[in-house]
Amino acid sequence: MNGWLALGVAIVAEVMGTSALKASDGFSRPLPTLVVVAGYGLAFWMLSITTRSVPVGLAYAIWSGLGTVLIALVAWALYGQRLDAWSIVGMALIVAGVLVMNLLSNTPAH
């Protein structure tokens, strides 16, 4: 599997797993708990596949950075979490950091 595709799947899986954490109610509800475990399991598996062709630092920065931004947006849409101006600035800085690492760094794959 292509490393970048695996990274995309890892991000989506992590966002799904994290989104289900609140619904799992401390792992007391079986279906949301299953979504959490499956989401994180798939996310880490795909992240490990990603590191075959993408430098681990870059892969993790993209995975965690975009995951953080997407989770904040999901929390806003599903759970009514308020996103104030500073939250948006913080998310923009995360995305900017990921872009700098991705576009300007000369880190080799191996």
Rank of each mutant, 00 (worst) to 15 (best):
M1E: 10
M1I: 05
N2Y: 03
G3T: 05
W4K: 11
W4S: 10
W4A: 06
W4G: 12
A6F: 00
G8F: 02
G8H: 08
G8Q: 09
V9D: 06
V9I: 15
V9P: 04
I11C: 04
V12E: 03
A13V: 07
V15C: 03
V15Q: 06
V15F: 01
G17D: 10
G17E: 12
S19C: 00
A20Y: 04
L21W: 00
L21E: 12
A23Q: 13
A23P: 09
S24C: 08
S24F: 00
D25G: 02
D25W: 00
S28W: 00
R29L: 04
P30C: 00
P30S: 08
L31H: 07
L31F: 08
T33P: 10
L34A: 15
L34N: 12
L34R: 09
V35Q: 10
V37P: 05
V37K: 04
A38S: 14
A38I: 06
A38W: 01
G39M: 02
Y40W: 08
L42I: 15
L42K: 07
A43G: 09
A43V: 09
A43E: 10
F44W: 12
F44E: 09
F44Q: 10
L47S: 02
S48T: 14
I49S: 06
I49W: 01
I49H: 06
T51W: 02
T51V: 14
R52C: 01
S53H: 03
V54L: 01
V54I: 14
V54W: 02
V56H: 10
G57Y: 05
L58H: 09
A59E: 07
Y60N: 13
W63M: 03
W63L: 02
W63T: 06
G67I: 00
V69Y: 10
L70T: 10
I71L: 15
A75F: 06
A75W: 06
W76S: 11
A77I: 01
A77W: 11
A77C: 04
L78R: 15
Y79K: 04
Y79G: 10
Q81E: 15
R82V: 03
A85P: 10
W86T: 15
W86M: 09
S87A: 13
S87G: 15
G90M: 01
M91T: 05
A92D: 14
L93F: 08
L93T: 11
L93Q: 13
I94E: 14
G97D: 11
V98Q: 07
L99M: 15
V100S: 11
N102V: 00
N102T: 14
L104N: 12
L104W: 11
L104M: 14
S105C: 03
N106Y: 02
N106P: 08
P108N: 07
